[in-house]
């Protein structure tokens, strides 16, 4: 459903992600753990392109959100002038591909690699691409700092994106859509017991209430996958429970979720798979039992001994 392929992310000279690949299947709950600065939040933000990966591709439901990464496609590498000149100098084709991948030899300007290369790149992109905004609607995100819209009421926070989306799609019956979107928002609010806050503004709410509303704001988009970026890290301790309960409820209902978290107990309880991200790599990945009971990687062992 969601796939990241060989993601690199550099901030200037700082290499935050150094080749991360993983996939998220339908109904799967994945937790990403790791120390602060390990790149786990960056990985999550690369998934919906809030950060543009430096290299690598992001695929949502078989469609490409990022530009094409030529290094991921053998046939594109083989169409390049660099490849041609390596082969003509006597290198075997497979060695040439290896060398190009390893040493990052393709020229950044597509036009410098010849017409065939340019054409393949373009064809591949046109065939697979999805509009970034359209892709993002399939995977809404919940933030550490909630980020409810301060100038909108709770209800408007929830209905804004579905309504705007309908406008982008030139829906004709806006009135009916408005009614059904509002109705759905109210039923979601009811589900979390906050229907009486529908017309309140975010500044009047507690952190736990804000985050639960942020979650149903994401839910109102009917996303295929929900991304959570440390959703409880900014909460007072007594409010963490209500947010985790709601997330657990979603997980039990079969929602596909990717959760960056420091709540190890929660990760262990709800996840199908846990990724340990460290120094820009996925150092270890497995079921909660494998990760928490029987960690193999020494960095993971060290990390767990500190947080558990």
């Amino acid at each position: 459903m969601l796939e990241v392929k060989n993601i690199y992310k550099n901030f200037g000279s700082l290499k935050v992600l150094r080749g991360v690949s993983t996939h998220v299947d339908k109904g799967e709950v994945i937790s990403i753990i790791g120390v602060s600065g390990s790149g786990k939040s960056t990985l999550l933000r690369c998934m919906n392109l809030l950060e543009q990966p430096t290299f690598g591709e992001v695929w949502i439901e078989g469609r490409l959100m990022t530009p094409v990464d030529p290094y991921l496609h053998k046939e594109i590498i083989e169409s390049s002038d660099t490849f041609a000149s390596l082969v003509s100098s006597g290198m075997s084709p497979s060695d040439a591909v290896q060398k190009i991948k390893k040493e990052d030899l393709l020229k950044e300007k597509h036009s410098r690699e010849g017409a065939a290369y340019r054409k393949l790149m373009k064809e591949f992109f046109e065939k697979n691409r999805i509009d970034v905004n359209e892709g993002r609607r399939k995977m809404s995100m919940v933030f550490q700092q909630f980020n409810l819209f301060n100038n909108k009421s709770v209800l408007e926070n929830i209905t804004l994106a579905p309504l705007e989306t309908a406008k982008y799609n030139h829906a004709k019956n806006m009135k009916e859509i408005r009614e059904s979107v509002t109705e759905r928002a109210m039923s979601l609010l009811k589900r979390i017991g906050l229907e009486d806050k529908a017309h309140a503004y975010p500044s009047t709410l507690s952190g736990g209430q804000k985050q639960r509303i942020a979650i149903i704001r994401s839910l109102a988009m009917n996303p295929d996958v929900m991304l959570f970026d440390e959703p409880t890290s900014a909460l007072d301790p007594e409010m963490i429970g209500e947010v985790l309960d709601l997330m657990k409820e979603l997980a039990d209902a079969g929602m596909t979720m990717v959760i960056v978290t420091h709540e190890m107990g929660f990760a262990r309880e709800v996840s199908d798979r846990v990724l340990f991200v460290d120094e820009g790599y996925i150092k270890e990945e497995g079921t909660p039992d494998q990760i928490f009971r029987d960690p193999k990687n020494p960095r993971l062992q060290d990390f767990l001994s500190k947080v558990l």
Binding site: N133, R136, N147, L148, A161, M221, L227
Partner: peptide, 12 residues
Amino acid sequence: GQTEAARALGLT
């Protein structure tokens, strides 16, 4: 974060 939340919801 306000812009990020809006963009993450697929708004232009």
